[in-house]
Design a protein around this nucleic acid. Structure first.
Lengths: 146, 146
DNA sequence: CCTTTTATTGCAAATCGTTTGCAACAAGAT
DNA sequence: ATCTTGTTGCAAACGATTTGCAATAAAAGG
């Protein structure tokens, strides 16, 4: 059984709720689609196993997982107003998006913690999360001519 | 005459186009609403001077200013899918948003440049822009009980 | 194993934020 | 003052997401 399915089962035990075929398929899709799929992309994949599954079920399940802090969602595209889902809970990993081909690269940098600390000190704020997004050109798209 | 109006007039001279009452009002609103208003908020304000002005005109004008790089737009709310407009062109200033009261604090930190440089070196990417968002509690909301 | 309970689903319709086509209008050049 | 054409208001379209509700199906209890 997959990681996420296991994790969800634990939550169901403690909080109540049911494991359904739809949820199982969506969880599996999340693990298979590593690169920040949209709800539609997840829907397309689960539909291959069960064509009757509905987009609203996908959304409901994703939002539910988000509320359990098992996945997260981001606006990774500047122009599109579409959420992308990340099979990883919290912050502390960040994204680069290629403006040309759309590739998303994840990265991490402990220096962000210093940024946070310095901001907190300067403004007396308590920072609970951070989003850092770079956009530009990936190696492939740099070498290609326009 | 306000800063933005002046700036826009320059662009109109070089690129063609017209200065209208609607555009003037929207530009003034942008200068008055310092804290990242939504299109609706701008609309509400300009309506006080000219109730016939339409929301779509507001959007068109904002997108036009964005394309001239005179303002910028961001998704500053995690849950809402609403754009917020920033009467400042490029990146290189960042945002903190209080999860409780919604206050937005702007900040800047040259250390972000180092983050960018280090990412570029590690991943061979060319970074053209960056978005950095912190969220948590502002000083006021920390001291208040829930 | 069969019944019962109620969480979850599919569907269609609603909603939210934003964009677009088009005829009417009004800047500003002539 | 007139003409040209960029800009507006309106209504309708749009994309992404959410919701109400009756039907379905987990899983708890007998």
């Amino acid at each position: 059984m997959s990681n996420l399915v296991q994790e969800v089962n634990l939550r169901l035990q403690s909080d109540g709720g049911r494991m359904t075929t739809q949820r199982r398929l969506i969880l599996q899709a999340l693990e298979r689609l590593s690169d920040h799929p949209t709800a539609e992309e997840i829907h397309a994949l689960v539909r291959k196993s069960d064509p009757s599954i509905n987009l609203s079920t996908v959304y409901r399940t994703l939002r539910w997982l988000e509320s359990l802090d098992l996945i997260s969602s981001h606006h990774l595209d500047q122009n599109k107003h579409q959420d992308r889902f990340d099979p990883v809970s919290a912050t502390d990993h960040f994204h680069f998006r290629c403006e040309k081909c759309g590739t998303i690269i994840e990265f991490n940098d402990p220096a962000v913690d210093d940024l946070v600390a310095s901001f907190e000190a300067r403004h007396n704020c308590q920072v609970k999360g951070a989003t850092l997004m770079f956009y530009g050109l990936c190696p492939d798209c740099q070498s290609k001519k326009d």
